[in-house]
Amino acid sequence: MNYTKQIQDIAAKLFAEGKIDVFVGYRMNGFDENQVPVLITDPQDVSKLVFTDKSVFNLVNYLKTDHTRRKRVGIVVKGCDSRSLNLMLTESQVKRENLYVVGICCEGVVDDAGEKMQNCTDCMVPDAVVSDEMLGTAVSGSGTLTYKKNADIVALAEKPLTERAAYFEEVFENCIRCNACRHSCPLCYCAKCCIDQETATLYNGANTTSAAFHALMTWSLHLAGRCVDCRNCEKACPSHLPLHLLHKQNESVIYENFQEHLAGVIPEDRGAFYKYSLKDPDDFIM
């Protein structure tokens, strides 16, 4: 998967036609094989753009910054990224007319070790669902592939409760409350996060296990039915916490019980918590 040339050409063309003010893409980080996001405002810098299977980050996150808000933006999105973009559009955070979206038919990206990432092997929607222009060959059945329940949560769910409790207590203990997960998430765009609000802080310690527990639980519930499994949060986490576990757990409950589509696949679909069905499970309620 290498669309470097195509993306450079598209960006150059868009700048030449005056259609965009900023192009959000990837560039080499300059010291190893990995890439970092880049916001290009000068057409001469277009040659910095790259796109390979090392283009791991979800660039939609950069649509919530002041560098892109109220500007005309060109952006590259993979399948998962495009779903978060869909949600951003539905939730009125970005305007479609301000965007030029280069969609990728994604073959999966790789981690530092060169292994295909877990969310890519499990991916149900490799093709971008929002785009003005698509690159690559469409993956057959994108969007209708079989749902694979995440292997990690299956394994954890089989363990005894006490072991799970111990496992997660360690996870929450290792959290340093830096909020990088929140900042890296495209869907965490609130003006002031509820966890930082007075009401919440009043009842919370600062950097403690129980505060981390509260923050991460609230965070994952706020993303339930919205998380697109791009794993930006995990890539950002300095403590390398397995944050995907919380999201995948919610996703599987929602997918299995409410017959909902995955988050952001359907335009105008707001996620499972903002609608209901009379057929929702009721047997867990006395």
């Binding site: 496992y167 527990f213 409950v253 409410f258 918590f273 209901y276 867990f284 309620i285």
Partner: peptide
């Protein structure tokens, strides 16, 4: 109906992280 969805997800999530 809205509450029912949240309750199921919350219950399963809390159970997942170690609450009976």
């Amino acid at each position: 109906y809205f509450a029912r969805r949240r309750f199921l997800v919350t219950k399963k999530l809390l159970n997942f992280v170690g609450f009976h």
